[in-house]
Design a protein around this nucleic acid. Structure first.
Length: 438
RNA sequence: GGACGGGUACCGAAGUGGCCAACCGGGAUGGACUGUAAAUCCAUUGACUUUCGUCUUCGGAGGUUCGAAUCCUCCCCCGUCCA
């Protein structure tokens, strides 16, 4: 057993303990436990919402326990009704396979597969679920579930009250997840399942099944739902879900997501998503109290999480990009730096010829690039002092941009308001006009 | 099938012959203040041109009128009640 102390206490002070089965605390204090968390292959990447459970596994491992990340290759084909108000679209096998591959890579970042004596594992429940025969399943597992019990579960109840009801397929989901627990209990001696608080019902179904089928003692622990004080859903921004995959959410945006954490949430998030000790977090809390403007807590949070997920280099780049995008000068930067920094900014490509002669009128440019919906709107924007070209304010609505405005003869950085950027790329006359998205 | 009520700009909601590109609220955008926050304040919010002005818009199609979101006819859709 590790001398780091009890993981249960660790979860508790971090506010990660939403609910747990009765004697889990004693068990975790006295023996090395094998625990698992299931991840749904609904997308090819995990998002920041999954970070909490992933780190739950990682923390567990640090405290000397053995983590198992279960990817739901089998259950993903069914769909979990928990927390859902409507029947889900079924994924086909190829999609699930594809999604699993992506998720597997991400999970591997956080877990140590070589650690002795408690290495991490990743398993796929398709391995045992697809071998299951209906008759056997009904006799060996179904027998332990009364329909009354299943109907009493919150996730099912809610759906039964809804108009569309719940399909038999999704109704069965709970049994499959319970069966997963039993399978892992038998295969690896796994005695603990963790998850989000919406999984509580499913987890208990699993502990019950282990008890009934094998007279085994299994436990459950659930993390709280991550909330944010501004009332929006955690992990969502105006531009959508914040993914762990850098292809889906650039490290810059990822960094910004954390940096923009509300004061009221910052300390909780530090507890949830970083490895900082209690003392370190308390220091940041005091700092936030005395000097909120410095946002030390948010900066630390953003740095640590970005570094953890995307690495040190990506963090440094995100930091530089943030400096430039929020008021910094762009003059000293090379074109490749700029392209890097503005990589998730929308851009429009126009012919280099557009800048020849008298040049490209700013009104036309705004409308053609979609920065404004009409010339009138562009005029308004300029009058109100909200249009910047290469970070310099445009005062004259009839101004023209010529080759002299192009950075290295090929790029113009347009800014609308404080932080809406758009790149205009000038291409050689031979190239055709085309548009590219963000 | 019958009786009402209603369909107005991104949303909600006034307007019931000219003063209507259409009150007001929300949202959105820009600005000030700030911490890339919250709150607050100011401005803008159909298009073209900006000076006047022109064009398109109030469920759809016709009509009356010098003039219609507003009146008339027909049609479509939504809500409530009665069959």
């Amino acid at each position: 057993m590790s001398n780091l102390g009890n993981i249960y206490d660790e979860f508790e002070w971090r506010g990660l303990l939403f609910d747990a089965t009765a004697d889990l605390k004693d068990v975790l204090a006295t023996e090395s436990v094998t625990a698992y968390i299931g991840f749904d292959p609904t997308a090819s990447s995990l998002h920041v919402g999954s970070l909490l459970p992933i780190m739950g596994l990682a923390r567990l491992q640090k405290f000397g326990h053995s983590p198992i990340a279960l990817v739901g290759g089998g259950t993903g084909l069914i769909g979990d009704p928990s927390g859902k108000t409507a029947e889900r679209q079924l994924l086909n096998r190829e999609q699930v396979e594809f999604n699993l591959a992506g998720i597997r890579v991400q999970l591997a970042h956080f877990l140590d597969f070589d650690r002795s004596p408690n290495p991490a594992q990743i398993v796929n429940n398709l391995d045992w679920l697809c071998e299951l025969h209906l008759i056997d399943f009904l006799r060996d597992t179904g027998k332990y579930f009364t329909v009354n019990y299943m109907l009493s579960k919150e996730s099912v109840k809610r759906r039964i009250e809804s108009e569309d009801g719940i399909s038999y397929t999704e109704f069965t989901y709970m049994m499959l997840q319970a069966y997963d627990f039993l399978a892992l209990y038998r295969r690896t001696g796994c005695t603990l399942q963790m998850g989000g608080s919406d999984q509580w019902g499913n987890i208990l179904a699993g502990t019950d099944l282990v008890r009934k089928a094998d007279s085994g003692k299994a436990h459950g622990l659930v993390f709280p739902l991550v909330t944010n004080s501004s009332g929006t859903k955690f992990g969502k921004t105006e531009s959508g879900t914040v993914w762990l995959d850098p292809e889906r959410t650039s490290p810059y945006r990822f960094y910004q997501f954390w940096l923009n954490t509300d004061d009221r949430d910052a300390i909780n998030y530090l507890k949830y998503f970083t490895w900082l000790t209690r003392a370190e977090i308390e220091a940041l809390e005091a700092e936030l109290e005395s000097n909120p403007g410095a946002r030390a807590a948010q900066k630390t949070l953003a740095e640590l999480v970005t570094t953890m997920v995307h690495g040190e280099d990506a963090y440094q780049k995100a930091l530089t990009a943030s400096g430039v995008l929020f008021g910094g000068s762009i003059e000293s930067l090379s074109i490749s730096d700029l392209k890097d920094i503005f990589e998730d900014v929308p851009s429009t490509t126009v012919s280099r010829e557009t800048f020849d002669g008298e040049g490209f009128g700013v009104l036309a440019m705004c409308t053609e690039t979609g920065i404004t919906a009409s010339n009138g709107e562009a005029r308004r924007l300029i009058r109100q002092g909200g249009l910047f070209v290469n970070n310099e304010k445009i005062d004259d609505e009839n101004a023209f941009l010529t080759g002299a405005n192009l950075i290295e003869n090929q790029l113009i950085v347009i800014r609308k308001g404080k932080r809406n950027y758009h790149l205009v790329l000038a291409l050689d006359p031979s190239a055709q006009r085309s548009e590219t998205g963000a």
